[in-house]
């Protein structure tokens, strides 16, 4: 019973915290609120560098969230909002940097790593195939010897 009460309390409390966010910033629709949440999740706080501005409590993140919200109210597109923050704080605030000459290595590394891995796998497979076909077939004599040996072992096992 107590456990049930705790569970209900937890559910209600989480409901409150969600309601709290929309109490600070009112949105016309769920879609708009979701757009806001997505935007602040992919913008990076310049002060606390490993947090996005959704998670960060620093004053600068608060200002940045406020700008995102105000620009949304003014009907700005996602690109315009991100661009306006990049103009102030630099490319650093984007968790997904644009593809240009400076970030080429960054974007290409996963592809290079996967291709490299595929090459290694292909190499191993080809080599083992080659080794398989290259092995000389047994002559009749040898085959007979093996059959005899295996036959002996099986009999020994049964005994």
């Amino acid at each position: 019973m107590l456990r049930m009460a705790c569970f209900l309390l937890a559910i209600t409390a989480s409901g409150f915290s969600v309601a709290d966010v929309s109490a600070v910033y009112g949105f016309e629709s769920r879609g708009e609120e979701q757009r806001y949440q997505n935007l602040i999740a992919e913008l990076r706080c310049p002060k606390c560098q490993n947090q996005n501005i959704a998670d960060s409590n620093s004053p600068i993140s608060k200002d940045m969230r406020n700008l995102v919200y105000q620009m949304m109210l003014d009907g700005a597109s996602n690109e315009e909002i991100v661009e306006s923050l990049v103009d102030r704080f630099g490319e650093f605030v984007k968790y997904k940097p644009d593809l240009d000459s400076r970030t080429l290595v960054l974007w290409a590394t996963p592809v290079i790593a996967v291709l490299g891995g595929l090459l290694v796998v292909a190499g191993v497979v080809v080599r083992s195939r080659r080794a398989g076909t290259a092995a000389p077939a047994l002559s009749n004599e040898e085959q007979a010897r093996i059959d005899k040996m295996l036959g002996e072992r099986n009999q020994g096992g049964n005994a």
Binding site: K47, I60, D63, R88
Partner: peptide, 12 residues
């Protein structure tokens, strides 16, 4: 209110 600071990209 830190408006000019914000436009200057001041983060600390």
């Amino acid at each position: 209110k830190g408006t000019l600071g914000f436009d200057l990209g001041v983060y600390g």
